[in-house]
Amino acid sequence: MHTFLVVLQNTPGWAWLILAYLVYSGVKRTRPHVKSPVQIILPSAIFLALIFAKLAQEHFAEPALAGIAAGAILAVIFVSSIRPARDTYRQADGRLVLAGEYHSLALMMTLFCVNYANAVGSAMAPLATGSAVAVFGYSLVNGFCTFYMASRSLAHMRATSGAAV
């Protein structure tokens, strides 16, 4: 318990601000909402940039590449099968009406938790978090969540005109 409290106390304030923003953003998406194409693509672009920065930080190691690739493939298959944009409609002004969903909240919390745990682990046990299995594991989760969001964003962008349900 003591270690847990030390970790929480030594977490920088900006990490808690990011967590608060991700929770706020995810909760907002649980209700139907209207977004511009930029508002749909921008979060995915940011997460894609972060995943490629993380990949560069790992020096493009094979476990990281394999994990991200496997996560990306699984995400595309998953998005193709559940069709998350089936209730998305494009308005006359080009903005998109999206149904409320919990995927975003779950994905953003998963990304935050995995990367937070990896950062803490890197500080406390660098050999363990640097192992091939650990690198593959968090790369798989990061790849899945990031490419799920990106694939879903592209699916929303293909929405046609119509009336929202």
Score class of each variant (00 low, 15 high):
2 H>R: 14
3 T>W: 12
3 T>H: 14
8 L>E: 08
11 T>Y: 09
13 G>S: 11
15 A>M: 13
15 A>P: 02
16 W>R: 07
18 I>V: 15
19 L>K: 04
20 A>P: 08
25 S>H: 14
25 S>R: 14
29 R>P: 01
29 R>L: 12
32 P>K: 07
34 V>W: 04
36 S>V: 08
37 P>A: 14
37 P>D: 14
38 V>K: 07
39 Q>A: 14
39 Q>P: 08
39 Q>S: 11
44 S>A: 15
50 L>E: 00
53 A>G: 03
57 Q>C: 03
60 F>G: 01
61 A>E: 03
62 E>I: 11
62 E>L: 13
63 P>Y: 02
64 A>D: 00
68 I>E: 02
69 A>P: 00
70 A>V: 10
70 A>R: 09
73 I>Q: 02
77 I>H: 04
78 F>H: 08
79 V>F: 02
79 V>Y: 01
81 S>E: 12
81 S>N: 14
82 I>Y: 05
83 R>M: 02
84 P>M: 06
90 R>I: 01
91 Q>N: 10
92 A>L: 07
96 L>I: 04
99 A>F: 04
99 A>T: 09
105 L>A: 06
109 M>N: 10
112 F>W: 15
113 C>T: 15
113 C>E: 15
113 C>L: 15
118 N>Y: 10
121 G>I: 08
124 M>N: 13
124 M>W: 14
127 L>T: 12
130 G>D: 07
133 V>W: 11
134 A>N: 11
135 V>S: 01
135 V>L: 07
136 F>V: 08
136 F>H: 02
138 Y>A: 07
138 Y>R: 13
139 S>I: 09
140 L>N: 02
142 N>T: 06
143 G>D: 05
147 F>A: 10
148 Y>D: 06
150 A>D: 03
151 S>V: 03
152 R>W: 11
152 R>M: 15
156 H>V: 13
158 R>M: 13
159 A>H: 01
160 T>L: 04
160 T>I: 03
160 T>P: 00
161 S>L: 10
163 A>D: 15
164 A>G: 06
